[in-house]
Amino acid sequence: MSLVSAPGAGTWLGASPEVLVEVDEQGVFRTMALAGTQALAPGALPQHAIWRQKEIEEQALVARYIVSCFKQLRLREYEETGPRTVVAGQLLHLRTDFAVNLRQVPFPTLGTDMLRLLHPTSAVGGMPKQAALSFLQEHEGYDRAYYSGFLGPVNLPQAGVSRLFVNLRCLQLHPSRPFCMQAPG
């Protein structure tokens, strides 16, 4: 969950289970492919989820895109785990995790380089990336403001730790309409 309030930007409330880029205390870079969503049925176990072909293909497309970003950077030393079903609140998602031990590869700028390549994610802009972004800019017709993007702490006091999340599931709160949420468009 996130709550951000800043003069000129407004007050925003969000929830995202999706890590865009992270560098942890042990010097491990992480990102994930998270796609496919379904409600968690009461009493159901996540491992019994049945995924449609469309959701499986969408998740695989995102995972392949992450691998292509590693290839653009000429990085081959990464671990890939998944896809697997994960729980986020009352929802299920398909997720593949990627990790790179930065102490074992000579790549000190991997977090920044992957952020540049991954943002905006396909969940925000679509695929193929450049064609989708061009289409949105030409046809969407409104400013998304902070309805999409990324957020999180950068360079925490613990030796360069950063955790940025995909900002996709959010809303803007308006003081003049205390229980009213404004959706884009």
Score class of each variant (00 low, 15 high):
residue 1 M to T: 14
residue 1 M to W: 10
residue 7 P to K: 11
residue 8 G to A: 04
residue 8 G to W: 02
residue 11 T to M: 12
residue 11 T to E: 08
residue 12 W to V: 08
residue 15 A to G: 11
residue 15 A to V: 15
residue 15 A to I: 15
residue 16 S to L: 03
residue 17 P to M: 04
residue 19 V to Q: 09
residue 19 V to D: 07
residue 22 E to Q: 13
residue 23 V to H: 07
residue 24 D to G: 00
residue 25 E to W: 05
residue 26 Q to E: 02
residue 26 Q to H: 00
residue 26 Q to D: 04
residue 27 G to R: 01
residue 27 G to H: 00
residue 28 V to H: 13
residue 30 R to V: 07
residue 30 R to P: 09
residue 30 R to L: 12
residue 32 M to D: 11
residue 33 A to V: 08
residue 34 L to Y: 11
residue 37 T to E: 06
residue 38 Q to S: 10
residue 41 A to D: 07
residue 45 L to K: 13
residue 50 I to Q: 14
residue 51 W to Y: 10
residue 51 W to I: 12
residue 52 R to H: 13
residue 53 Q to K: 14
residue 53 Q to L: 12
residue 53 Q to P: 06
residue 55 E to F: 10
residue 60 A to G: 15
residue 63 A to M: 07
residue 63 A to I: 06
residue 63 A to Y: 05
residue 64 R to S: 06
residue 64 R to Y: 02
residue 68 S to V: 03
residue 70 F to L: 04
residue 71 K to L: 10
residue 72 Q to R: 15
residue 72 Q to I: 04
residue 76 R to Y: 09
residue 76 R to S: 13
residue 78 Y to F: 15
residue 86 V to P: 09
residue 91 L to G: 05
residue 93 H to R: 07
residue 94 L to H: 13
residue 94 L to Y: 14
residue 94 L to E: 10
residue 96 T to Q: 05
residue 96 T to P: 11
residue 100 V to D: 08
residue 102 L to K: 10
residue 106 P to W: 06
residue 107 F to E: 14
residue 110 L to A: 04
residue 114 M to S: 10
residue 117 L to P: 09
residue 118 L to Q: 05
residue 119 H to V: 07
residue 120 P to F: 03
residue 120 P to S: 07
residue 124 V to L: 15
residue 127 M to Q: 03
residue 128 P to S: 02
residue 129 K to L: 01
residue 131 A to K: 06
residue 132 A to M: 04
residue 133 L to D: 01
residue 134 S to V: 01
residue 134 S to D: 04
residue 134 S to E: 05
residue 136 L to N: 01
residue 140 E to M: 05
residue 143 D to R: 08
residue 144 R to W: 02
residue 145 A to K: 15
residue 145 A to F: 12
residue 149 G to L: 03
residue 149 G to A: 06
residue 150 F to E: 01
residue 155 N to A: 14
residue 155 N to P: 05
residue 156 L to Y: 07
residue 157 P to R: 10
residue 159 A to D: 13
residue 160 G to T: 01
residue 160 G to R: 02
residue 161 V to D: 02
residue 162 S to Y: 00
residue 162 S to P: 02
residue 164 L to V: 01
residue 164 L to F: 03
residue 164 L to R: 01
residue 168 L to C: 05
residue 171 L to C: 14
residue 172 Q to Y: 03
residue 173 L to V: 12
residue 176 S to Q: 13
residue 178 P to N: 06
residue 179 F to Y: 14
residue 180 C to T: 14
residue 183 A to Q: 09
